[in-house]
C-alpha cells in the first residue's frame, strides 16, 4: 500500500470540498478499496472517510419509502430494515461474512457497482432513487455497466430511497469461492407492476428482465415464468459457470424469489 492522507469530515459539504482534489477518493467501509490499495491497483493520495457524516448514516421510514443512508453498514440494514422491508434486510444479511457486513456500506457497494454485488439488484429491482450531494438519480439511469455508474467525479451518494413493495424477495445463488452472487435475482411486487432485477449474470452488470416482469405483472406466480428462458448472449462465462448456466439460473432464481416473496 502506498502512503496516503486520511481526512474525516463531518459534513457533506466539507467532504465534497476535499473531493474536488482529483487525487482524493471517498472511503466508506474500505472492504473494496483497502484490498485494491494493498494490491497496489489503486493509490489515492487522500482518503476522505464518509463515516463521520451523521446525516449519511441510518435507516429511516419516510411514508411508503425506506431511506437508507449511504454509510449504513450491511449489518445495520439487516437489523434496522427488517421490520420495514424484510427482503432488503435479508439481502444485506447475506452479503459476505460478519466482518464485511460490519464495515461494508450501501453507498460503497453502489459506487463500486461490482457486476456480482447484491445491492444493485435491490436498487434496480425496486426502482429506488439514488440521492447524491448534487442530485437524485433514478435506478434505471444509475447503473451503466460493470463498475460503471452515473456518478460524476467527486460526487458522493448520500442516501438511497427505496419504495417499499407489497411483496419482495432476493434469491441469491452463491459463487462457491467469493460467495458473491453467481446469479442473484430481486423481485418486487408493487400495485403498479412487478420489477425483476438480475445481478451476477451479465457482462453488462445488473439488469432488468423485462419478459419476466411482464409475465409476473399479469400473474404473480412462479409458474407463470416456468416456460421463459433468458438468452445466454452477453452472460458472464468464467471458472464458476458458463453463459448457458447463468442464463438458466436467471429463470430458476427468479422463480425462487417469487416463491419466497412476502
Amino acid at each position: 500500500m502506498h502512503n496516503f492522507e486520511f481526512v474525516k469530515p463531518s459534513t457533506v459539504a466539507d467532504a465534497v470540498a476535499v473531493l474536488a482534489n482529483a487525487e482524493a477518493q471517498p472511503f466508506a467501509g474500505g472492504q473494496t478499496l483497502i484490498p485494491s490499495m494493498k494490491a497496489r491497483l489503486n493509490a489515492p493520495e487522500i482518503l476522505v472517510s464518509l463515516t463521520g457524516i451523521a446525516e449519511m448514516n441510518g435507516v429511516r421510514r419516510d411514508g411508503g419509502a425506506l431511506v437508507v443512508g449511504a454509510t449504513t453498514t450491511h449489518a445495520a440494514v439487516a437489523r434496522d430494515a427488517a421490520s420495514h422491508f424484510p427482503a432488503l434486510a435479508a439481502l444485506a444479511g447475506q452479503i459476505g461474512d460478519p466482518a464485511v457486513r460490519t464495515r461494508g456500506t450501501l453507498g460503497g457497494s453502489l459506487a463500486n457497482n461490482d457486476p456480482s454485488a447484491c445491492y444493485p439488484a435491490a436498487v434496480l429491482g425496486t426502482g429506488a432513487t439514488i440521492v447524491t450531494n448534487a442530485r437524485e438519480i433514478a435506478a434505471d439511469d444509475y447503473f451503466q455497466g460493470m463498475f460503471t455508474t452515473a456518478l460524476d467525479e467527486g460526487e458522493i451518494i448520500t442516501s438511497v430511497r427505496f419504495p417499499i413493495p407489497e411483496k419482495a424477495a432476493y434469491a441469491k445463488f452463491l459463487q462457491p469461492a467469493s460467495r458473491f452472487a453467481l446469479t442473484g435475482v430481486f423481485v418486487a411486487k408493487y400495485a403498479s407492476g412487478v420489477r425483476v432485477a438480475v445481478t451476477g449474470a451479465s457482462e453488462g452488470g445488473v439488469f432488468r428482465w423485462a419478459e419476466a416482469e411482464a409475465a409476473l405483472s399479469s400473474g404473480f406466480d412462479a409458474d407463470s415464468i416456468g416456460r421463459l428462458s433468458h438468452p445466454s448472449d452477453g452472460m458472464i462465462a468464467d471458472l464458476h459457470g458458463t453463459a448457458e448456466y447463468r442464463a438458466h439460473l436467471v429463470r430458476v432464481m427468479t422463480q425462487r424469489a417469487v416463491r419466497a416473496a412476502h
Binding site: 462457491p176 469461492a177 467469493s178
Partner: peptide
Amino acid sequence: LENCVYDDQGQLLSGSFMDYA
C-alpha cells in the same frame, strides 16, 4: 469446491480466494 486452474497462457485463474473455493 477446490480447483487450481491455469488458462492456456499459463495465467493462474484461481489465484485468490475470490476464485479458489
